[in-house]
Every structure is written in structure tokens, then in C-alpha cells.
């Protein structure tokens, strides 16, 4: 709003009225404050929480190593999930019935069984496969690998989490692709673009707006699901904590150490998701919403700003 329009006339005086009172808000606010105070009191007085142990192990070498392993596992499993999800989604949307039913079968299987079961399965793959050999089915083999040396606990964890994630991601990607208007594909075809080109340059970038928010949720969920890998003897964050409290019996403080690390990483991921959504939202809203930093800066400047000139004019 401009304060004075082009003809030079002043803005009309704004309404001055007594605002509605909200006594309920004050009461509920007071209740919450009391509960919060009790909680903080408990945090500092309960002996079992043992904050010195927390401090001692928060930056412990083993914990940090576990944290790095958790991050690696999350990133690699999500990468497999996203790439696999895109491939599965394209297969499902393919005109080739063999392709689409293969993708359907994959999704059906991996969504139908618990991820923990899949993890344990990959960990025990040796007993199923023996050795892996490359060759012609029922014919000669060319190369043979020992599965145990091939499938380490890290690989088992990656396969278990990533292949399962691909099934979920494919549904997200498919929904995103289907959300893009048919006219976009037609316009691209009319310009002489090829199918893959259209997918990569036109459809997927627009599908991203629909794909990113649930993918952010999946990533955050994956970060926490990696803790299941502790059950197959892979040392990630939780297992690192367990190894320590199995030795010193300080279970609760170490679980808090682990939890705080999970919360920190989750928070960072949420911020990343916000900026990613902003990036792929370009062109959709006439003006992008301000980032928290921009909003903070704007609020600060309006806070310090002098009252607008209109007030003087209308007074």
C-alpha cells in the first residue's frame, strides 16, 4: 500500500476500536507455563538424568563415528531410494505392460514386508545365495564372488533400507509426474522434443513441487529408520550409544545423547527442505514467500521504523 497515491490525496484515517479480549488465552497460557516449569525442574533435579555423563559422551569419538555412519547410511539409502523410485515410477507409467507389471510387483513386495525383516534378510543373504556367479542361466558361469565378502553389514544395511525406500519413493514420484498438466508434454512434443528430454527438462522439474515435501519427510524418516541397522550389527549412532551403555550401564543419559543428535540432524534437514521447496516453487507463485532471514530483517526494520508519514498528515 502506498501512503499517498498519485493524485496526492491522503489515505483515509484507519478505524480505532477497542479490541476483543481473550481471557481463555491467558488461562491456558498460564497452565502451559506451569507445566513447562515442572518439566525443566525435573530435568535438573532427577539423578537418573546425570548431565555430566551426557556432557562427557556427547562429543565422544565412538558416538561421532556412529553419527557419521548414520549420515552416510541415510544419504546412500535415500540416493538409492530416489533414483530407484524415479526408475520404478517411469516403468509403471511406461506403455510396455511387462515394464509396468514388473514395477508393480516390486512395489507390492517391498511395501508388503517389514523393512526390519528385509534388513535381516540381506544380512543373512549368504545362506540363500551361496556364491554369486555371473553367467548364462543353466549355462556356463564366467565370474564367481563370495557373497560374504560382497555383502558387508554396511552393504546389507544399504540394500535393505534403499531398496525398500525405492518402493515408497516410486509412488511419490509417480504422483508428482501425474500432477503435471498433459498440455506440457504436448507443447514439448510439438517443439520436437524427445520423450526422455521432456521428462528431464519439462515434467520432472514441475513434478518436483509435488515430490519434494514428501521426500523431505521420507529423508527425515530414513534418518531414524537407519537405527534398525543396529540390529544387524552395523555400528550407526544408536549402536554406538548401545556399545557404551552396555559397558557402563548409563542407559538413559546415552539414549539422550543419541536422541539429541537425531533431533539436531532432523532440524537441519527441515531447514534444507524449506529452501529446496522454495527453489522448485519458482514461477508458481507471483512472489516467493520471504525466507526466515528475510522475514527477521524485515521485522527488525519495521520495528525500528518511525511511524509512517500518513499519521502526521491525518492527525
Amino acid at each position: 500500500m502506498t501512503e499517498i497515491d498519485s493524485t496526492g490525496s491522503a489515505r483515509p484515517e484507519s478505524i480505532k476500536a477497542v479490541p476483543v479480549r481473550h481471557p481463555g488465552r491467558w488461562v491456558s497460557g498460564a497452565v502451559i507455563l506451569v507445566l513447562a516449569a515442572m518439566f525443566v525442574h525435573m530435568l535438573f533435579t532427577n539423578k537418573n538424568l546425570d548431565w555430566t555423563t551426557f556432557q562427557k559422551f556427547f562429543f565422544d569419538g565412538g558416538i561421532l563415528k556412529g553419527l557419521v555412519a548414520t549420515l552416510e547410511l541415510t544419504v546412500i539409502a535415500m540416493a538409492i531410494g530416489i533414483v530407484g523410485g524415479i526408475i520404478l515410477a517411469l516403468m509403471r507409467l511406461s506403455a510396455n505392460p511387462l515394464m509396468s507389471s514388473a514395477a508393480w510387483l516390486y512395489i507390492w513386495f517391498f511395501r508388503g514386508t517389514p523393512v526390519l525383516v528385509q534388513l535381516i534378510f540381506w544380512f543373512n543373504i549368504k545362506s540363500l545365495m551361496g556364491d554369486i556367479s555371473l553367467g548364462i542361466p543353466f549355462g556356463p558361469t564366467f565370474i564367481t564372488w563370495d557373497v560374504n565378502s560382497l555383502v558387508t553389514t554396511f552393504i546389507a544395511a544399504i540394500l535393505g533400507l534403499g531398496l525398500n525406500e525405492a518402493a515408497y519413493m516410486s509412488e511419490i514420484v509417480r504422483a508428482g509426474i501425474l500432477s503435471v498438466d498433459e498440455g506440457q508434454t504436448e507443447a514439448s512434443q510439438a517443439l520436437g522434443m524427445r520423450r526422455l528430454q521432456i521428462m528431464r527438462r519439462i515434467v520432472l522439474p514441475q513434478a518436483m513441487r509435488v515430490i519434494i515435501p514428501p521426500t523431505g519427510n521420507e529423508t527425515i524418516s530414513m534418518l531414524k529408520t537407519t537405527s534398525l541397522a543396529s540390529t544387524v550389527a552395523f555400528t550407526e549412532l544408536l549402536k554406538a550409544g548401545e556399545d557404551i551403555f552396555n559397558a557402563n550401564y548409563k542407559t538413559i543419559p546415552l539414549l539422550i545423547v543419541v536422541s539429541v543428535w537425531y533431533i539436531i540432524v532432523t532440524s537441519i534437514l527441515s531447514v534444507g527442505q524449506y529452501y529446496l521447496e522454495r527453489h522448485f516453487g519458482r514461477g508458481s507463485a507471483r512472489e516467493l514467500p520471504p525466507t526466515p532471514l528475510q522475514r527477521l530483517r524485515r521485522n527488525l526494520t519495521t520495528f525500528h521504523a518511525k511511524p509512517p508519514a500518513v499519521q502526521e498528515g491525518s492527525a
Binding site: D181, G183, Q184, E186, A187, Q189, A190, L191, G192, M193, Q197, R201, I202, P205, Q206, F280, R282, G283, S284
Partner: peptide, 30 residues
């Protein structure tokens, strides 16, 4: 199709590209 231009009732511009990028896309990529 490269030699045949088509204009649609509902425009079908690429919403994630600027006007200039919309125009440059096909000559550069195709």
C-alpha cells in the same frame, strides 16, 4: 515436428522457465 509450430488454446508455456528460457529451450536442446 521441429518444422511445424503449434500454438494452443491454453498457451502451455513452461511455468518453471522465464519467457526467454521458454523460447530458447527447444532451439538449444532440440
Amino acid at each position: 515436428r521441429r518444422d511445424i509450430g503449434m500454438v494452443f488454446q491454453r498457451f502451455n508455456l513452461f511455468p518453471h522457465m522465464t519467457a526467454l528460457q521458454n523460447i530458447m529451450e527447444a532451439p538449444v536442446r532440440v
